[in-house]
Amino acid sequence: MTLKLPDTGAEVLPDGRRMVPSAARNAGPILQVLQGLGLTGRLLEIASGSGLHAAQMAGPLGLSWQPTDVEAGNFASIRAWAATVEAAIQPPIHLDATEPGWAARLGSWDAILLVNLLHLIPERAAATLLAELGAALAPGGTACLYGPFLRDGLATSAGDAAFDASLRAQDPAIGYKDLAWVTGQLAKAGLACEVTPMPANNLFLIARHSNSIY
């Protein structure tokens, strides 16, 4: 099932880059938070989509950036975005992060980034993804999750309530996840989480192994 989302039908430039308005809007605020975390080494981006975030963030962060996506149709845009910058962006690889066992297959990572995915997948799939994060994150590493969340089971703006309702109307199994549920799943995976408010009523979750020092 193809979801109808605010960015559905995003413009494709002649060189193959998809121009996704939401990714363009949130790239700056996300990068600002990431720059304050002192990340080093290798970053795994889950659900890279258009590839815009990799192009705008890999260079400034100085990371070796591994884009992934479940849809091979996104690879052309990811490659096209990577070609516009001088950064250590690796060729995109296929990853369905909702399938058990991917962490063992891909090994450990210094950083993991997940943007605007949890509300687009069922709760069981999200639980698998969050469980795998603990196994995929290297000791001392940082997992970063950005997106909209319910708080105490409720949307905190009219816009969020409308978008959540739209998602559930298209597929009753998906929709916004509650913040407490997500942090609880991360805790089960051995990850302690701190939460940073972001523009447009989104949140940025910073998760590290419970025995790491913030």
Rank of each mutant, 00 (worst) to 15 (best):
M1F: 11
L31A: 12
A10H: 10
W102P: 05
G147H: 09
E45G: 00
G41C: 02
G16S: 06
A180I: 06
L129N: 03
G9P: 05
G134L: 09
H119I: 05
P91E: 15
A161P: 02
R105S: 15
Q170C: 04
R25A: 13
R151F: 10
I206C: 14
G41Q: 03
L37A: 02
A180M: 03
I174G: 02
L5T: 15
G141I: 05
P92G: 04
L145A: 08
L106N: 03
I112W: 08
F204V: 03
T98P: 00
L43F: 04
R151L: 14
T40H: 15
V182A: 04
E45N: 00
G175H: 08
M19I: 14
D160M: 10
R25W: 11
I46F: 06
E11N: 04
I121A: 08
T183G: 01
I78K: 00
A47V: 06
V70L: 14
F163T: 03
A27N: 10
A136E: 05
D7G: 01
R151V: 15
P172L: 05
C144Y: 12
W65K: 03
A54M: 04
L43C: 12
V115G: 04
N26Q: 12
S210F: 03
L63D: 07
R18G: 01
F149P: 09
A187P: 01
A207R: 08
V195I: 14
D15S: 01
N116V: 07
A24Q: 15
Q35H: 03
A126I: 06
A158C: 00
W102I: 00
W81Q: 00
Y214K: 12
H94R: 12
E86Q: 14
Q185H: 10
A76D: 14
L114H: 12
G38D: 08
G38K: 06
Y214F: 14
L37G: 02
A136R: 06
T2A: 12
P21Q: 05
I112K: 08
L63K: 02
A169E: 11
V70W: 10
L114M: 14
A54E: 03
L118G: 09
G49Y: 07
A189S: 11
W109V: 10
I93Q: 15
D69M: 00
F163M: 09
G9Y: 04
L154K: 14
T142Y: 04
L118N: 08
L44Y: 08
L203A: 11
A187N: 11
A82K: 03
A131G: 15
L31H: 10
A173C: 02
L150A: 09
R168M: 02
A131Y: 01
A135E: 14
A104K: 15
S157D: 02
V115H: 00
T156W: 13
A72Y: 11
G38H: 08
E99I: 13
Q32K: 13
M57E: 13
M198K: 06
L44S: 02
A88C: 09
H209Y: 07
A58E: 05
L179R: 11
A72N: 12
T68I: 08
P6N: 07
E45T: 02
A207Q: 05
M198D: 04
V195T: 15
